[in-house]
């Protein structure tokens, strides 16, 4: 039996709340994400998924509650924590007048990676991982939505490709709707990449998505948010077993035919 100790908890929120005007976006959210999890954060539009992610990435401040990441307080140890966190919030945003390579090089500079040869090799590795190596030097304004999404995922995955400052600390990647705008091939590629990084580098993922079928294939744990409140947070296999539902490879004849042609 696996016994979880405190250091296994990568991300912990306690009674996190945030209102927009009188509307409660997130209410008393308490979450535990463990090392090596691929955690699916599910909910309808307006359930509070993106607000939670923005709070986790310190883009907005919670009105109440506490966030601890890597056993440290997000407010007081912000710089140390963020050095091992990558994130993608809603639409991927890059400088349209720069190439994909230059945009990613900026992100490596922001993380103080040196020398420049290391920056270039990391960026090349990232671009290959998301299948954009061939268009690396094209400006972002020429990219399709799907390509921008792939690049957004690449930017978010950066901490998984760089040496960690704190020994034995594995990165946490927070992705908000990472499959938005991706074609079936892109969705499968990103899924495989996430699984590979999770398995080989023990990267922990916190992913929000509408695509429940994808979450079934990807996640080991899920949390469901309804009107800002966490309804359930559980091991996926256990949850479905309790409900008497079996996870099987979905039958998607058109998708299989399409992928066969690609």
């Amino acid at each position: 039996m696996c016994v979880l100790i405190m250091t296994d908890i990568i991300l912990k929120t306690e009674n996190l709340s945030r209102h927009f005007g009188r509307f409660p976006a997130v209410e008393n959210l308490s979450l535990n994400i463990y090392k090596g999890d691929i955690y699916g954060f599910l909910g309808l539009n307006g359930a509070g998924k993106t607000t939670t992610i923005r709070m986790l990435l310190r883009l907005i401040r919670p009105e109440s509650g506490k966030i601890s990441i890597f056993d440290k307080d997000l407010n007081s140890d912000y710089l140390e924590i963020m050095s091992s966190i990558g994130g993608l919030v809603e639409i991927p945003a890059f400088y349209p007048y720069l190439s994909a390579r230059d945009n990613l090089l900026i992100l490596t500079r922001l993380r103080m990676i040196s020398p420049s040869s290391l920056r270039y090799s990391i960026v090349d590795e990232l671009l290959s991982a998301v299948g954009l190596k061939g268009r690396a030097d094209d400006r972002i304004r020429t990219y399709s939505l799907g390509m921008k999404q792939r690049l957004g995922v690449a930017g978010a995955l950066l901490p998984a490709f760089i040496p960690q400052r704190i020994p034995n600390q594995t990165p946490l990647i927070i992705l908000d709707e990472p499959t938005n705008g991706l074609d079936p091939q892109g969705i499968a590629d990103i899924r495989n990449l996430i699984k590979k990084l999770n398995k080989e580098k023990e990267v922990t993922f916190f992913i929000s998505s509408h695509l429940l079928s994808e979450m079934e294939l990807l996640c080991n744990r899920v949390g469901i948010l309804r009107q800002g409140k966490l309804v359930i947070s559980e091991d996926l296999a256990k949850l479905l077993k309790e409900e008497g539902i079996e996870i099987t490879e979905p039958k998607r004849p058109l998708e299989k035919y399409f992928m066969g042609l690609m």
Binding site: M82, I85, G86, I91, P92, F94, L110, R111
Partner: peptide, 14 residues
């Protein structure tokens, strides 16, 4: 306007 402020702020900088 571009939304890049979020991309920048998800980095270890103040």
């Amino acid at each position: 306007t571009f939304g890049t402020i979020r991309t920048i702020l998800i980095a270890p900088i103040r």
